[in-house]
């Protein structure tokens, strides 16, 4: 087996008979990929994990994925992706850049061929105090491929009083279809630079009263029914003047003339967001199978 750099992984999925088979599944520390056996036709599941259940400053995950010829891939995590704070002086992996050693990066590049589909349904990211996290997820779809991408973040370890106290969180999700970038969802969360003679407004002030924010990007024929249902549900809402902020709030916007959509949800507790998503995305059960769906939203 050829050696690969730290944190690098590669997944290639193809149909074989009625099964989806990994023609390649490789990974290197601290990345770990596990693929449990599932019974859903032409569908495979992969758990994207890290050793020790979290990422630390300096970790760089670089995962490339190809889904071919009508197969379906479901990508999950096991518990939230924890990004630990910078550990000054921790041992660097070989070849790591010293200056970058406090930044944690996770980079997914996912190619989906015509008729194939990918469902990225991880648990939320939790950045601990002072963590710096950079996440890039690029989906390149061809023809009538479909994709669902869930990206969510919690405010931190609330039990330890951590509420939006990480150093920096940058998340970029891109959807390319036939070589054209049709959606670029870039979110940067960090404390603002102090302004002289102006009281500080913290990141927590800006994001309150919610402790969890989720974004779902959907595109392609397999997502049309969910997208239509949610849009109809959304448009039926009529908001009268409220005097208190809602405990959960969501929105949906079409992208690329309704070929796709972006769904956003925020709530006070991440479990409320999970429950809401579990209900909203339930039609996926019919595509990836009930067992797999429950793994994602159990």
């Amino acid at each position: 087996m050829q050696t690969i750099g730290p944190g690098v992984g590669r997944i290639v999925l193809r149909p074989h008979g009625s099964e989806a088979v990994f023609s390649e599944l490789s990974y290197a520390y601290p990345l770990k990929l596990l693929s449990p056996k599932v019974s859903q036709r032409n569908t495979a599941v992969v758990y994207v994990l890290s050793y020790g259940g979290g990422l630390v400053g300096g970790d760089q995950i670089k995962l490339s994925v190809e889904v071919h010829d009508g197969s379906s891939l479901v990508m999950l995590s096991q518990g939230s992706t924890k990004v630990f704070k910078t550990r000054p002086g921790h041992q660097l992996a070989q070849g790591q850049n010293l200056e970058m050693n406090d930044l944690t990066c996770q980079h997914f590049d996912i190619e989906v061929s015509p008729g194939s589909s990918v469902f990225l349904l991880p648990d939320p990211v939790t950045c601990f105090r002072s963590a710096k996290y950079n996440q890039v997820q690029k989906f390149r779809l061809s023809g009538d491929a479909s994709a669902v991408l869930l990206d969510w973040i919690t405010s931190g370890r609330k039990s330890l009083g951590e509420e939006w106290v990480f150093n920096r969180y940058y998340s970029l999700n891109e959807l390319w279809v036939d070589g054209k970038r049709i959606a670029r969802d870039a979110m940067l969360l960090e404390e603002e630079i102090p302004i002289q003679s102006v009281p500080t407004r913290t990141l927590a002030d800006r994001l309150q009263p919610y402790s969890c924010y989720a974004t779902v990007l959907m595109y392609g024929p397999l997502t049309q029914a969910i997208s239509r249902t949610l849009t109809a549900e959304f448009e039926a809402i009529s908001v009268f003047k409220q005097h208190t902020r809602p405990s959960l709030i969501w929105s949906i916007s079409p992208i690329s003339e309704g070929e796709g959509c972006v769904l956003r949800v925020a709530a006070g507790e991440s479990e409320d967001v999970r429950r809401w998503l579990g209900r909203a995305l339930r039609p996926l059960e019919g595509i990836i199978g009930m067992d797999i769906y429950r793994r994602a939203f159990a």
Binding site: D185, A186, M187, L188, R206, Y213, I249, S251
Partner: peptide, 14 residues
């Protein structure tokens, strides 16, 4: 370019 206020996005979309 990046958005820095997800709450504002949701509210504006509504």
């Amino acid at each position: 370019p990046a958005m820095t206020w997800p709450l504002g996005e949701i509210l504006a979309s509504r």
